[in-house]
Amino acid sequence: MSIVVDHLNKQFKVHVRQAGWLDAFRSIFKREYQIVEAVNNLSFTIQSGEIVGFLGPNGAGKTTAMKMLAGLLHPTSGAITVEGFIPQEQKAEYKKMMSLVMGQKSQLIWDIPPMETFLVNKAIYEIDDNSFNKTLDELVALLELEPLLNKPTRSLSLGQRMKCELAAALLHRPKVLFLDEPTIGLDVDTQEKVRRFIANYNREHKTTILLTSHYMGDVTALCKRVIIINHGKLLYDGDLDVLTEKLTPYKLLEVHLPTLPNQSWETYGEVDSIEEGKVTLRIPRERIREVSARLLQEFPVHDLNIQDPPMEEVITLAFQEKSHG
């Protein structure tokens, strides 16, 4: 087992204050605090080489949990082991076998080129010349870094910087990789490249990866399994497909016709949308075959697509389901 999280809790004591001049002044004499339970009795395990999506709405506790896994934060209670190490013990051996990439925090040295950060990491992580050159060549080719290596980091675009961040985090070939919003702010093309890179990297190096992202594209492309949390509590841990089937017991049937007949579609299924030459219906999964056959028989269908509901919808339902329960 690569990662074991056992009844993990993290509480923060947060200073609360009302807005306004008077309350700002009052807070000098009387400070009020609130205990925030960022992570609440969280348990899960991850196998070596597995790639798992870690999902939840804003403020769910994902990043806090990830920072505890990386050893940046000490748990209030509970236990974590990653490849046999206790992260908060801050052992150098542990730091050498893992990496945390935070989409909103840079490890690159800001005013000098990324290559300088890579060379510092080479020395700090004690990477020998051969491995360094081999890994760097591989990363430069996969992430198309060649033109970026010698420009000051501050002059790179967000997407270019993110690719360099990934390279800096992977030079020492970590066995465990924590990716916190690795595609945040990137354009669609770069998102796709980064996703493809992560998938390849996981396949080739059997790296254990825990990934948080607000882009469902990242999750569907990379993760078979997802862990969903909200208010620091575990909501779901399992197969993404099973979650989809459980929460959305229907599929979307997209029917393309030369002209849309003026008729009611309710006899076939719930109408999701009607556009020029296209109607999209929500059909219970067990009726898909029957409804498709009827439509093909009764209309001059140009094209017919059967799709799962968008992942955003599934995840939104997953968050709502538990907050109701």
Binding site: K67, A70, G71, L72, Q90, A92, E93, K95, K96, S99, L100, M102, K105, S106, Q107, N121, I124, Y125
Partner: peptide
């Protein structure tokens, strides 16, 4: 600002 985390994460 939280950027100290990058130093804590490195093995030095």
């Amino acid at each position: 600002e939280g950027s100290f985390s990058n130093y804590i994460l490195r093995p030095i």
